[in-house]
Nucleic acid binder design. Structure first.
Lengths: 339, 339
DNA sequence: CTGAAAGCGCTAACAT
DNA sequence: ATGTTAGCGCTTTCAG
């Protein structure tokens, strides 16, 4: 049987409003009354009907985190943090998979999702500044992790250009000279791929190294198999690279596999580095060097920011936060022969 | 601005009920009327307020998938399938992380989650038959993937005993004789760990091989680092194993890393096999042999079954489905020296 | 085929 | 400190 406020009110001999106040603490309630109501609640096992509450309040208590791939451990790790933070703030977090699909991202921006939500955290990869600016939906929006800048929304991201510059500088410091980049975006979209490519070029140029176009390998998507295929291509060159930056750790791990299959070794023949710091990279052989964003910080900040927007009040203007990152050298770029 | 049924009704000059019928198709509507209403809907950009609908219908359109680790790629892959299937059936799927915590699992069984849901898919690891039987909540429940049998609920799982028997038989067929199992559950819970251990023992016994107790390594949890620690322990034995079955792929990958760190090789020194067939195992070096459950089937079936229960109608009695699995031999158990 | 109206359970404004 | 009540937006029964 399902008990409602009314049942509690009847049992405790008080009005609906009083029960509601005991439950929500919106108005003070006398100690005696409170106890009686609480007892009725416990005895009858009442829990509020959230649909009714939501209808009345105009809010659902639900926020969504939309990411391009659920399967990517980076996003799984991020989701874990975000879910916890959301729960702490009294919200439930819904995972949404855009599958890196432009239409899906646009639909989300338009608020056209199946379930009503109070706010959206979006990791956009196929929409850019223009589409975000054109948005008319008024559900609060927080952007994470990609390169859509200068829009009137909160945005939490690492500095993609600096991250990839750091990675390449590390390779250069180790004496590598023919450095490849795997995971350029073939089209105009996937903004972060372009930013990471830019960082790669900047690092080369800063070191006075030539940029060989054939060492920039585009990929369709950004998973392990894409990294493997691209690396196989690079190894088939007359002069293969002596180091590789992968767009992310997954791509780098795919590249590592291609290397192994070709009978070459990292870091001896080719040094490898990725970006993301997924746990997998700590257990590969060799372990994978990477640039580690602060996932905890990103996840927590995104949720807190969004909830602040939803609940209104004294919220500063939308702003972009660049969260810190650190270089994590591991075996795949270690001194050759180390291992 | 937010448009409601009333706005559409006014615009189209019809009653609320008619608009509702155009939207839901619950009763037939005249062609003329339908067109007029549809135009109003398009012009004003109406979309139903789901909180109101849910309040009225007594359902939320939300189902939850509760798993012990979001981070485990096996569950991420499963979630991806389940989310898609749910969407196809008009439901939104909520991910819930039990963190393999008994209290959390019990709370879910009691329907004590933050958000109201129409049904629950649970992968229980710390509760057993008794707790499930004691459940009084009437939200439909589908169990997946673990060893809670003979309860009046739908249950989708592989045959854990058979799966691990198959894995060990494979190792034996390759000539291995000192076979270890990593990932025994230290306590009484984590039922599936016990089932897989049983399969391991059955396979040894069927082949007339001795079961060395020191080759059964318990782990606290079931991640990569647990596998690594346990393997390091096994390698320190006077007579280390010549093959290892990991409770799951993650544990096996951790074990593989420990092997590499110890300067030994798979499969030459120790053959390795896991269970789950996560993508990571196709890219490790060596690639990881495994027993592959049909994740697509499990995810789809679980959701379909749950939705059938929710929507009532002609639903057969609760039943257990054992989904198929296949042995996937890869390099980690390949002929020694093969690569 | 269409309309009127009740009411799902709750919160919050208005009374007392 | 507590009670009364309108109404959130929708579905669905009852009338016509």
């Amino acid at each position: 049987m399902v008990v409602s406020l009314k049942d509690i009110a009847a049992r405790a001999g008080v009005s609906l409003a009083t029960v509601s106040n005991v439950v929500n603490g919106y108005r003070p309630v006398g100690e005696q009354t409170r106890r009686r109501v609480q007892r009725a609640i416990d005895e009858l096992g009442y829990s509020p009907n959230l649909s009714a509450r939501h209808l009345r309040r105009g809010r659902t208590g639900l926020i969504a985190l939309a990411v391009p791939e659920l399967n990517n451990p980076y996003f799984a790790e991020l989701a874990e943090v975000a879910i916890r933070q959301a729960a702490e703030l009294g919200y439930t977090l819904l995972m949404e998979n855009t599958a890196a699909d432009r239409a899906t991202e646009l639909a989300l921006l338009r608020d056209a999702q199946r379930h009503p939500i109070d706010g959206l955290i979006l990791s956009p990869v196929r929409v850019g500044r223009a589409e975000v600016l054109a948005r008319t939906a008024d559900t609060p929006l927080v952007l994470i992790g990609e390169g859509v800048y200068d829009v009137p929304h909160d945005h939490i991201a690492i500095d993609n250009v600096a991250a990839s510059r750091t990675a390449v500088a590390h390779l250069i410091a180790l004496g590598r000279r023919r450095i490849a980049f795997i995971g350029a975006s073939p089209g105009d979209d996937r903004h972060s791929a372009q930013l990471r490519l830019r960082g790669y070029r900047e690092a080369l140029s800063a070191a006075g190294l030539p940029a060989y176009p054939q060492l920039v390998a585009p990929t369709e998507r950004f998973g392990r198999r894409d990294g493997r295929r691209a690396m196989a291509g690079l190894l088939a060159l007359d002069e293969p690279p002596d180091a590789v930056l992968g767009y992310n750790d997954l791509v780098a791990i795919g590249a590592l596999r291609a290397l192994t299959e070709a009978g070459r070794r990292a870091p001896d023949d080719v040094a490898l580095i990725g970006i993301d710091d997924i746990e997998e990279g700590r257990f590969s052989s060799p372990t994978l060097s990477t640039v580690a964003p602060d996932k905890d910080e990103i996840g927590r900040l995104a949720v807190r920011r969004l909830v602040a927007r939803i609940e209104g009040g004294e919220v500063p203007d939308p702003f972009t936060v660049q969260t810190p990152f650190v270089l994590v050298p591991r075996e795949s770029t270690g001194p050759a022969g180390g291992g």
